[in-house]
């Protein structure tokens, strides 16, 4: 959810049209949380995505649930720290152990930032500079140490690509 927000926010800063749509209600905790982000050069109609260009999937249950919702020849970036089902056909799948990498960095919570980095390393949708500015702006006051941790994680993801 946060990685999606950072990407949407950064794309907005670059002057693009963006929408961000969360899953809401009872499935926010414990279930499979997800968000849908659209970045476009023209006005966006539906913020809902039937089939995505790219799926960034951080756990096994979500992989099972969402792996078929990618466009033909689309990209899936998946967290191989979890047991994952077989890859779907007609999609390019990249598997990285985001949770293990995050634990090595000393903070399990940054797995999403490593994943975001690996995605942008592939697609370059938004400039790294803008992502860094966004991380800085979104960090809560009094928790500025988070900026460095998240930037590091993002850079590691970028290098995976």
């Amino acid at each position: 959810m946060l990685a999606g927000k950072i990407m949407a926010e950064a794309a907005m800063q670059e002057g693009r049209y963006v929408t961000w749509l969360p899953a809401y209600g009872p499935e926010v905790r414990g279930g499979t949380a997800f968000c849908m982000v659209i970045i476009s050069d023209s006005e966006i109609g539906s913020p809902y995505i039937g089939e995505a260009d790219t799926l960034i999937i951080l756990n096994g249950l979500s992989f099972q649930k969402f792996k078929c919702r990618v466009k033909k020849n689309g990209l899936i970036i998946a967290n191989s720290s979890f047991d994952l089902e077989d890859d779907p056909q007609n999609a390019r799948v990249l598997r990285y152990p985001f949770t293990d990498l995050a634990l090595k960095q000393g903070n399990i919570k940054v797995a999403n930032m490593i994943a975001l980095g690996s995605y942008l390393g592939q697609k370059g949708t938004v400039a790294t500079k803008t992502i860094f500015e966004t991380i800085r702006r979104m960090a809560p006051a009094g928790k500025k140490e988070l900026i460095k941790i998240n930037k590091q994680a993002f850079m590691q993801g970028l290098r995976l690509a």
Binding site: K5, A8, Y17, V18, T19, W20, L21, Y24, I44, P47
Partner: peptide
């Protein structure tokens, strides 16, 4: 509606 309420846009 729920979609417009929940979605983020600039």
């Amino acid at each position: 509606d729920g979609m417009l309420g929940q979605m983020m846009e600039p």
